[in-house]
């Protein structure tokens, strides 16, 4: 396999919890991201899945250099990502872009679509000469399937799916190598979501993009991603190829997650194995000792409370999982 374009090691992001207005004091830390390592190769899609509060969006923010990490390293094409400053940082931003979740708040309501998609060229004037920008913006709109004549319209004149396309055009403007997609389709209707997913696939093929695809919808991730990392309370609990995760998940959390996803096929009703987790995700400000999943885990044993399991390949499995009792799922269900 090629060298990873993005390499993340032991990334940690803690947010202080403060009290008081005049005299702020820190009373604890939210461990949003707590030791995440991952590799992203050129042209591939790495899915990061997890439920709300698992830290997947914080991971995106840190990797986009929107918020500083607490510790850990990341390299982009071999260069230290967190050491980049000034012109170096600005230049790097051309290579890595982000598509955000909410198509309603991610576009400035007071700017025309032309301004929104053209802003990357204002910030990086070296990419497109001034006279060329209008044409470039119109090309971008066409690439994402919008009418290039609508360059003077405002975001509110577009539907949610079209706005998401505008957001994608903006991310695409600087011809990045990596696009972080932070829940890009979760706010869209089913029929529109499929259009945007297909667009993302097409763009990947056309421009050789690598996607770090963050989502909570396991169906979407299955559809789009080559490899998958499953996050729970700030850590990756299982990682592997899409095939490995979706057919041979070995971490009890991944198994429960997969069995919780409703499948649109009534003939399977009652025939799929249901692993129902009890309760809710614990607060990331006060995570359980040892394995973070143990409080909801059907397999939990005393060792889980003491010894945090490493993310590694264990006997009987073919990909890394952070569970002392990692094992392939029970075989079977339907005929």
């Amino acid at each position: 396999m090629s060298e990873p374009i993005l390499q993340v090691r032991d990334l940690v992001k803690h947010f202080p919890v403060t009290r008081g207005v005049v005299f702020r004091r820190t009373i604890g830390h939210v461990r949003a991201v707590d030791g995440v390592s991952l590799d992203l190769h050129p042209g591939e899609t790495l899915g990061v899945v997890g439920e709300s509060g698992c830290g997947k969006s914080t991971l995106a923010q840190v990797l986009m250099r929107l918020t500083p990490p607490t510790s850990g390293t990341a390299t982009f094409e071999g260069q230290d990502l967190f050491a980049k400053r000034g012109a170096d940082l600005t230049a790097w931003r051309r290579d890595m872009q982000i598509v955000l979740q909410d198509p309603y708040t991610s576009l400035n309501p007071r700017k025309t679509v032309g301004d929104v998609v053209g802003e990357p060229f204002d910030i990086h004037p070296e990419v497109a000469p001034k006279g060329d920008r209008r044409r470039r913006v119109q090309e971008l709109l066409e690439v994402v399937g919008l009418n290039p004549e609508h360059i003077r319209r405002y975001p509110h004149q577009f539907s949610g799916g079209q706005r998401q396309r505008i957001g994608i055009a903006r991310a695409l403007a600087l011809r990045p190598k990596v696009i972080v997609c932070d829940e890009p389709v979760s706010a869209l209707d089913v029929s529109i979501q499929a259009q945007v997913l297909n667009l993302l696939s097409d763009l990947q093929r056309e421009f050789g993009l690598a996607y770090l695809f963050i989502a909570h919808d396991l169906g979407v991730v299955r559809h789009l991603c080559d490899r998958v990392a499953v996050m729970y309370l700030g850590s990756i609990v299982e990682t592997g190829t899409a095939e490995e995760i979706y057919t041979r998940a070995s971490h009890p959390y991944t198994q429960a997650l997969l069995s919780s996803v409703p499948v649109p096929d009534p003939s399977l009703r009652g025939r799929r194995e249901a692993i129902r987790l009890e309760g809710d995700v614990p607060s990331p400000a006060d995570p359980p000792s040892g394995c973070r999943f143990r409080t909801r885990c059907p397999k939990a044993a005393p060792v889980c409370a003491e010894d945090p399991p490493a993310l590694e390949v264990r006997d009987g499995t073919d990909h890394p999982a952070a569970c002392h009792f990692a094992a392939p799922p029970h075989l079977v269900r339907a005929d």
Binding site: V190, A194, G219, H223, V261
Partner: peptide, 10 residues
């Protein structure tokens, strides 16, 4: 609609 839904068991 059914053809638009990405499924986990796809």
């Amino acid at each position: 609609l059914m053809d638009s839904v990405p499924r986990v068991d796809d």
